[in-house]
């Protein structure tokens, strides 16, 4: 990872000095251990800040719809690049204004899982060949990275960027055999009442802070339907039905657009299981329309297209 980080820096320096980009969006080490934050580099002097490690889970595409710079370089993992591609298809990002520095992603580590196992203050974190070594005042603990990956990373099939201009690092071997929707398939087997119980339990936690929406690279509406007054779709209440409608529609609006980056779930302060919603949509999109978001710039997302041969087994009446 060290060498990748250095090459990111070299590339960033080259792009900024040759004025190929005005802004480079990447990652930097966070102020807290086990964390990275987004870095917005306008000046080559700041290049040293750039980092690449197992905590770069944020989807940087999120920022592309919020900046005004004309030419932007961006570090893109598989999911970042997919979100960028989806945003290009939806006209929110101009492909020619974006220099995508693709970085194959071996999966990101869920710091909360590690933190749980550590008592005491962390001084230093090192990474070595699939291991994370956490050092503190009077301890040193080694974590096998693969056991601590985010749920979305565990079943990720698209670690390599789908689109890029420059690729840094070796492509990772993607696990094409993993059934990324196994959990969903399992969940579907439960009785409707049990499913409703779970949905109710999860969604009832929601405090309508909309952090999920803020974190999502695909949520870029000027005004979200949930905030609309005219018409007023959803009341500003904490009535369960209003919260439920918000979550149902939010995930429905992700149809064929969600890139499974897990940003929404990570952002949620109430730790609502949002993946069980997004992955259901992603599964059905794959099953019914053989589509995954952000893989191909030339294909319209499924709700912007149709096929006369589409299945219609949702019709159950007569």
């Amino acid at each position: 990872m060290q060498s990748v980080e250095n090459r990111i820096k070299e590339k960033a320096a080259e792009l900024l000095t040759t004025k190929k980009v005005d802004l480079l969006i990447g990652f930097e080490r966070g102020t807290m251990p086990l964390r990275a934050s987004p870095a917005f580099i306008y000046d080559e002097a700041d290049i040293e800040k750039l980092a690449w490690n197992s905590f770069c889970e944020m989807n940087l595409a999120r920022y592309l719809t919020r900046i005004t710079s004309k030419r932007v370089g961006i570090i893109a993992k598989g999911c970042d690049s997919r979100a960028i591609a989806a945003l290009v298809v939806e006209g929110q990002v101009k492909r020619e204004q974006i220099m995508i520095i693709g970085v194959p992603c071996p999966g990101m580590v869920d710091r909360r899982k590690i933190e749980k196992e550590i008592k005491g203050e962390i001084d230093k974190v090192e990474e070595k060949k699939g291991e994370i070594i956490v050092k503190g005042n009077n301890f040193e603990k080694v974590f096998k990275k693969n056991n601590y990956l985010y749920p979305c990373c565990k079943v990720c099939k698209h670690g390599n960027p789908s689109i890029y201009d420059i690729l840094i690092g070796e492509k990772v071997k993607e696990n094409s055999k993993v059934d990324e929707y196994a959990e969903i398939t399992e969940y579907e087997k439960k009785s409707p009442d049990k499913r409703w119980e779970f949905f109710e339990k999860e969604v009832s936690k929601c405090i309508r802070c909309y952090a999920c929406r803020q974190a999502c690279p695909m949520c870029y509406c000027e005004e979200c339907f949930v905030d609309s007054f005219h018409p007023k779709w959803v009341d500003k209440s904490l009535d369960f039905s209003d919260i439920a409608i918000w979550h149902i529609m939010r995930v429905y609006h992700q149809t064929g657009r969600c890139v499974s980056c897990g940003a929404c779930e990570r952002a949620c302060p109430m730790q609502i299981n949002l993946r069980f919603l997004t992955e259901k949509i992603n599964k059905d999109v794959k099953v019914y329309f053989n589509f995954e978001a952000g893989l191909d710039l030339s294909v319209n997302p499924p709700l912007a297209a149709f096929d006369i041969k589409d299945r219609e087994d949702f019709i159950d009446t007569c």
Binding site: Y187, L303, F306, D310
Partner: peptide, 20 residues
């Protein structure tokens, strides 16, 4: 055809959540 796509996803989602 457009409606069919919409409701394929939507109806499946409702079922999944446990709406009868």
């Amino acid at each position: 055809y457009l409606a069919r796509r919409k409701f394929t996803i939507f109806k499946n989602l409702l079922d999944y959540l446990g709406i009868e």
